[in-house]
Write a protein that binds this DNA or RNA. Structure first.
Lengths: 224, 224
DNA sequence: GGCCTTATTATGCGGTTGGATAATTGATAG
DNA sequence: CTATCAATTATCCAACCGCATAATAAGGCC
């Protein structure tokens, strides 16, 4: 008698885990967390649902792994940019801002993914830890770049400047993700560099577009 | 024979609809969209689940109504602040920024609610329209305040300044909602006023804390 | 080429979901 | 006081959820 059982091939553990994680992220991006059911994930990964529990002890663990992978992808991108950036503090900060406001960080799916997992971080402690680590790592990196640029170390002032610059980047990131067609190419980066530059009282655009010297007495910090 | 049926009282249509909407928002804030099941909503509203379909043609319609109510609450707050604000353009913009970065707009529940509904706006056309209307209305209001302050009408430059200032406000709003304990009272407002002021080349803090005159040649616009 | 491990499929279960429908009861009008 | 109507409750249903377990075959080993 012929078997109607689905044929299959055995795959590496890493391959399968990654396929399941990718399927999870794709489904969450498409239809929110509620769309990422075990059956839908398995189907998109080309396997049957039972396999999920063979590689992840529960669906929550798969979700946590997918979130960690997403966050790691973003932070790894920032780190890679800084690793290949020049030594000039101004250029380094500009490269950092540019990377944070360009693909693949700015992406139509990114915001939805971030929003979908935000709620999960409220319950799952592991995901909450991933969230806090990623967020503070980004802001600390930004703060150290600002410190290098301004050349001093008033911790309180640096913290405030980092918060403000981080807010600009986050806000532009949100707008760029939510309304990808509303901005010309590179417009988001240009806006980010100018806004961060205005807050810090510096010009980050590389001087190419600068029309007048920038007195350094008008940054946010000096106003305080 | 005694009836074990739950006693009840009849209520106004508006009262019931509002109770169901409030219950929905509360549940979404607590546990994300997945926690807002028809049974949970009905229970929190003190009715039985069948009543939901008596007032809303489907659960999706209830979700859309809840989202519209949430957005209306926020925009109404901004509008009310502007209505009672003084006539000085600088003071009006400062009041607008202050309101956007203070309770009840900045609230521990607000971000989770916003994130939860963001995904729904991708599918439901009605919710997408609510989303776009609210977002653009806020930015347009901000842009007109900036226009009044700067006293000119270069549309392209105004749009860019509005986008940047909106990004600051959004970013600080996110941080304030996500990490309510990370900021001292009024710190968020202070940061917002200074950052927006730096971008526009103006001082919005009312001069109380200003230590030096602010040349107007360093705003984001002039750099371009 | 047969065997053995285990990755993978297949099937079933208890619980929950959104929705439909029937039964009941509170308010109102006459 | 009673009839009427609709607001509300109660019950049911098919579909789906995550998860557990049993059956099966793919691929490495000798």
């Amino acid at each position: 008698m012929p078997s109607d059982r689905k044929p299959y091939h055995r795959a590496d553990e890493d391959t399968r885990r990654q396929a399941l994680i990718n399927a999870t992220l794709a489904l969450v991006a498409e239809g929110g967390a509620q769309a990422a059911t075990v059956r839908a994930i398995a189907h998109k990964a080309g396997v049957t649902s039972g396999l999920i529990r063979h590689y992840f002890s529960s669906k929550d663990h798969l979700m946590a792994a997918a979130y960690a992978h997403l966050m790691h992808r973003m932070t790894a991108h920032s780190a890679a940019v800084l690793r290949t950036a020049p030594h000039d503090p101004k250029a380094r900060l500009a490269a950092f801002v540019t990377a944070a406001l360009s693909p693949p960080v700015v992406d139509g799916e990114a915001l939805v993914l971030w929003a979908a997992f935000l709620q999960e971080t409220h319950r799952d402690p592991a995901m909450r830890q991933t969230h806090a680590q990623t967020y503070l790592a980004f802001r600390d990196q930004l703060q150290s770049l600002i410190a290098d640029l301004l050349g001093h170390s008033d911790a309180q002032a640096l913290r405030r400047l980092a918060i403000a610059c981080n807010a600009v980047i986050d806000g532009l990131w949100m707008e760029g993700c939510a309304l990808p067609n509303a901005f010309a190419p590179e417009e988001l980066v240009d806006l980010g560099l100018r806004a961060v530059g205005a807050i810090l009282g510096t010009d980050l655009t590389g001087g190419l577009l600068q029309t007048s010297p920038l007195p350094l007495t008008t940054n946010m910090e000096v106003q305080a």
